[in-house]
Amino acid sequence: MAIRKKSNKNPPVLSHEFIVQNHADIVSCMAMIFLLGLMFEITAKAAVIFVTLQYNVTIPATEEQSAETISLYYYGIKDLATIFFYMLVAIIIHAIIQEYVLDKINRKMHFSKTKHSKFNESGQLSAFYLFSCVWGTSILVSENYISDPTSLWRDYPHTLIPFQMKFFYILQLAYWFHAFPELYFQKTKKEDIFRQIVYIGLYLFHIAGAYLLNLTHLGLVLLVLHYFVEFLFHISRLFYFSDEKYQKGFSLWAVLFVLGRLLTLILSVLTFGFGLARAEDQQLNFSTGNFNILAVRISVLASICMTQAFMMWKFINFQLRRWREHSSSQPQSVKKKFVSAKGKTSRKERENGINGTVTSNGADSPRSRKDKSS
């Protein structure tokens, strides 16, 4: 995300700069049209499709529930309209966080262009991940998914889900769809666009897959697990930008990242290889939403495994790059400290490589320390 430069001159209406500078106001007006449509009887029926959740079913409550009836939801084509509306809301919230929080911090910290872009990215994602983790965890607790792991596959297909669950998935899809226009609004560099598209596409593919294949229980657990690890990484990066000596958060994230990948694979194998594989009904049925057949199970499990392998490959490259940067910076720091302490060096020290390109082995060897003390 590049720095948005404000100029005193007003750009032409509907020009590129005009849309970028005023995109939050434009989107707010679009969202207000749908909200105003709720106030009039003629447009209310159409506006309701965008603002409220669709496809609700009222069923009698069980003996354990205090209410007489409960409302459950299933998915349909009208969900696209609801996702579009909340995508507009996500763009507005994105602009609010950017202008009233991140931009103010950026002006105080005086980051470089590279750090400015990464700080904005981590600031936005850490807020979203924190919100999603708290909300997703509350759903897991209220629906007893944590205390009863068999609920991940028991009573599949999970075609009817509670309001909180469906709203959670709608907002997840809306947020990641909003990331596409944000590439334009934030003037993302051309070399970063492909990486961002792959990043966003993976989220949409897996979230939409869990939603459409009625695997919402497993999808929610894996999302909360993944979001918690990602939140730790981005909040650690924010602290690192304020103090470059801060490394503890990255060390904890590295451990939890590996554990998160292992736990994701374990839960996925248990669900598809053990739970759903032993279900009685294993016939493809679009009317009932049952996709529990061998081909689908293998495809979904392979998709999850390939994604985890891709993330581990990126993680290993990231750690190797950090290790190289850390190892290459040590000789330079040793050189600067030595030169500033002694100024001129002797001929014997120059022959040992202390003045010039110093290697870490030479700088830390017992012989070098003996020469310094002599």
Results as ranks from 00 to 15, higher is better:
Lys115Asp: 14
Leu53Lys: 05
Ser28Met: 13
Ile97Arg: 12
Leu36Pro: 00
Ile19Glu: 07
Ile49Tyr: 08
Gly37Asn: 03
Ile105Val: 10
Tyr86Gly: 08
Glu121Ala: 09
Ser112Pro: 04
Ala95Asp: 15
Ala31His: 09
Thr137Ile: 01
Leu130Gly: 12
Ala44Trp: 00
Val27Met: 11
Ile26Tyr: 13
Thr69Tyr: 14
Ala81Leu: 12
Thr114Asp: 05
Leu80Tyr: 11
Leu102Ile: 14
Asn106Gln: 04
Phe40Trp: 10
Ser122Tyr: 03
Tyr73Leu: 02
Val141Leu: 07
Ile91Gln: 14
Lys104Thr: 05
Met109Gln: 09
Met87Asp: 02
Asn56Arg: 06
Cys133Ser: 05
Leu80Gln: 11
Ile105Gln: 07
Thr114Cys: 00
Tyr86Pro: 14
Thr52Trp: 05
Gln124Glu: 12
Ile42Met: 01
Lys115Ser: 15
Asp79Val: 11
Tyr129Ile: 01
Ala95Val: 07
Ala44Thr: 04
Ile83Tyr: 03
Phe18Pro: 13
Thr43Trp: 08
Leu88Ser: 14
Leu38Cys: 06
Met87Thr: 04
Ile59Arg: 08
Ala127Asn: 01
Met32Ser: 14
Gln65Pro: 00
Gly123Asp: 15
Ile19Val: 15
Ser132Pro: 09
Tyr86Ser: 10
Leu72Thr: 11
Met30Ile: 10
Gly37Trp: 09
Val27Asn: 03
Val101Asp: 13
Ser117Arg: 13
His116Glu: 14
Asp79His: 06
Ser117Asn: 06
Ser117Glu: 12
Val89Gln: 14
Ala24Trp: 15
Glu64Asp: 10
Glu17Trp: 01
Val51His: 04
Met32His: 09
Leu130Val: 10
Val27Thr: 08
Leu88Gln: 12
Val51Asn: 01
Ala127His: 03
Phe84Val: 12
Ile146Asp: 08
Ile59Leu: 12
Gly76Met: 06
Val101Thr: 13
Ile42Ser: 01
Glu64Gly: 00
Lys118Val: 02
Ala95His: 13
Tyr129Met: 11
Thr114Pro: 00
Ser112Met: 02
Ser28Cys: 13
Ile33Val: 15
Asn120Asp: 11
Ala90Cys: 15
Glu64Tyr: 01
Ile77Tyr: 14
Met30Tyr: 04
Gln21Met: 00
Asn120Arg: 05
Glu121Lys: 09
Met109Glu: 13
Gln124Gly: 06
Tyr145Gln: 08
Ile42Thr: 01
Ala47Asn: 06
Leu140Cys: 13
Lys78Ile: 10
Leu102Glu: 07
Asp79Ile: 07
Gln65Asn: 02
Gly136Leu: 10
Leu72Gly: 03
Glu121Pro: 05
Val20Pro: 12
Ser138Thr: 11
Thr58Tyr: 00
Leu88Glu: 06
Met87Ser: 13
Ser132Trp: 05
Ala90Arg: 00
Phe111Asn: 09
Ile139Ala: 00
Ala127Gly: 02
His94Gln: 14
Lys115Phe: 03
Leu80Met: 14
Lys118Ser: 02
Met39Asn: 04
Gln65Ile: 00
Leu35Thr: 06
Ile59Ala: 02
Lys108Gly: 07
Ser71Phe: 03
Lys78Tyr: 13
Glu143Lys: 04
Val141Cys: 01
Lys78Leu: 15
Phe85Tyr: 15
Tyr145Cys: 01
Gln124Val: 03
Ser147Ala: 14
Tyr73Ser: 05
Gly136Ile: 07
His110Thr: 15
Leu88Trp: 05
Ser138Gly: 13
Val57Glu: 10
Ser28Gly: 06
Glu64Leu: 00
Leu88Phe: 09
